[in-house]
């Protein structure tokens, strides 16, 4: 019995060692995954879920989706988001909140993505830019809404949104985000629910 164990153990051990050697030999000839960064700057593409810095995608009409509810500001643990809004009168005589300035401080962002989770509109997202170094701390505070931009009008434009404001890699990343935004907008009839989160 013990004899049997000795030899079967020996042979199964040798077999598993050979499997391991096979794996490393295969790895020896595979393409290496190392990115040689400064040289491959042009063709380097970060993976889609990389959290570089916060951006607010705008469509070709310079429209964004932010309604200025301030949920992201409340969700942010570090207070790196400041949303400034104003009340505007709409055509049908109602008052409506409108975004004036969306300030984001990259310097104290910890890339937790809680703001994006909190946003009922899918108006903000992380882009894959990672070259965020600047020489002055003040430059880290960025305004995310572009000058002269306004909220996208609902019902008028039934999703022709192909945001061409960004170059190709960013556009790809935005496509799923735009889809994800759709169900959120339908739920918009009860905007109180996300606030409890």
């Amino acid at each position: 019995m013990s004899n049997n164990n000795y030899f079967s153990g020996l042979f199964s051990g040798i077999k598993s060692l050979l499997v391991g050697l096979g794996v490393t030999m295969k790895e020896f000839f595979t393409r290496k995954i190392t990115e040689q960064y400064p040289e491959n700057r042009k063709e380097l593409k970060m993976f889609d879920r990389f959290r570089g810095r916060l951006v607010m995608p705008h469509n070709e009409n310079n429209e964004h989706k932010c309604i200025g509810c301030g949920l992201c500001q409340m969700a942010c643990p570090n207070g790196s988001i400041t949303v400034t809004t104003e009340m505007l009168d709409t055509d049908d005589g109602k008052k409506k909140r409108s975004l004036v300035k969306y300030e984001y401080d990259l310097g104290c962002c910890m890339f937790c993505e809680l703001c994006i989770t909190a946003c009922p509109q899918g108006a903000i997202e992380f882009c894959t830019d990672f070259e965020n170094a600047v020489f002055d701390r003040a430059k880290l505070v960025q305004q995310l809404n572009k000058p002269g931009s306004k909220v996208v009008e609902k019902k008028v434009a039934p999703k022709p949104e192909a945001p061409a404001a960004k170059p190709a890699p960013a556009a790809k990343a935005e496509a799923p985000a735009a889809k994800a935004a759709e169900p959120v907008e339908k739920k918009e009839s009860n905007p109180e629910t996300p606030t409890t989160v």
Partner: peptide, 13 residues
């Protein structure tokens, strides 16, 4: 170099 290649890296370059 060989260690790097077995680990799917490029090694010193």
């Amino acid at each position: 170099k060989i260690c790097a290649f077995f680990q799917c890296r490029l090694g010193p370059n």
